[in-house]
Write a protein that binds this DNA or RNA. Structure first.
Lengths: 207, 207
DNA sequence: CCCCGAGTGTCCCCAAGGTCCAATAGCCCC
DNA sequence: GGGGCTATTGGACCTTGGGGACACTCGGGG
């Protein structure tokens, strides 16, 4: 059922594009090639697992610039750099910026495919946890403002009466909100609720 | 109160060692220099924040080999590589293995000190969360086997009676163990307990 | 005017947790 | 071998906290 991971190739050299598309395609990946960073950016973001094989030196937007642009957008996508004229400083910068790999030509297709597999695996995992987080966030969105407040206080471990005085209401009211929170968040227990809050990226204040 | 971050330097070239020690020392870091990886490994592991400035090419154990050795041991320490003859493949391998930075000679002292600061900051943060995890693990160690079982089942959100039937005992017994768990783990609420379990690295099964 | 978010009250039930007490089994030390 | 200690188990009793059911109020927006 899992969508096949897509490999995007961005390189200004037509012969390199063709060669890469052939090698990667032969390994069983759907491939999409782009002649420039701008062309790639105009493409709607992928929703499935994917990775980006990116040339460093290109006219217009360069590889590292594209990497930076993608990082600034939410656009999570693992990058495998390829280059003919790499230097150490460039590779280190790219790796520190989160690149998955950095290959210098000539590289073996084994190395390339290994890098792609690593990148694609990583993306699939990231996608999974991201989907989970999004699902939880969606549930949080269904909460009313007041319910959200109660939610936050419940997961810190406060008693209903403490939450009540914190919010300046009576305990009964807290119970009502609390019950709605449990229902909307689909949590069967406080333990589950706490774990949901954690996975939603919420860092509890009063630790 | 925080112990000053220590910078370890491992380089086989005496003049490089001397020069590095001077530059790093002038920046205010306590410095310890070693002429070989083996010499560094004989040193008792640092307990405070630190980082390792490591030459790549050395007779005997090389820089990357030392990095690998340290990674295999629990020995968390950020590595900043320096080298005179770096190539891209080497730098990429080192970065993928978790190096913080990879500088090629000649590098400015600004670059070196920036890399060291980054590395040391990272280590300080890692040290903090590690200390917290260790503290929690220590509390878990004070639990009896039975208490640990109850602990695990409580953080999954089960009711006392469910835990009881799971363990083949009556509810009362579970309450007793549960109370001891809360006390020994110093948790004031189930929410806190769940967060402690998470921070202890425990992944709950029945998610 | 009706719906929704928010707040509140009253009963009632069940879950959690504490107190006092007690028994059994394994272990270490003298 | 006896005494003390810990882990584990269990019972009776009581208090507090959590949560469901049902009813009612109030203000704002469509």
């Amino acid at each position: 059922m899992a969508a096949a991971p897509v490999v995007f190739v961005v390189d200004d050299d037509p012969s390199v594009r063709k060669s890469l598309a052939r090698v990667v395609g032969a390994a069983g990946y759907p491939v999409e090639v782009f002649a420039s960073a701008g062309e790639f950016l105009r493409r709607p973001p992928s929703d499935g697992p994917c990775c980006l094989v990116l040339d460093v030196r290109m006219p217009g937007i360069t590889g590292p610039e594209l990497q930076k642009t993608l990082a600034k957008a939410v656009h999570r996508i693992p990058v495998v750099f390829i280059t003919g004229h790499g230097d150490v400083a460039m590779s280190v910068t790219a790796m520190k910026a989160g690149a998955q790999d950095f290959l210098t030509k000539p590289f073996s297709r084994r190395d390339l495919l290994a890098a792609i597999e690593r990148a694609v695996d990583k993306d699939a995992r990231a996608l999974g946890s991201e989907a989970r987080t999004a699902e939880i966030q969606a549930r949080v969105m269904t909460l009313t403002p007041r319910e959200r407040e109660v939610f936050a206080l419940v997961v810190t471990g406060l008693l209903n009466k403490q939450i009540a005085s914190e919010l300046g209401v009576v305990e009964k009211t807290v119970k009502v909100h609390r019950a709605r929170v449990m229902e909307k968040m689909r949590a069967g227990s406080v333990a589950e609720l706490v774990r949901l809050a954690g996975d939603a990226g919420v860092v509890v204040a009063g630790a």
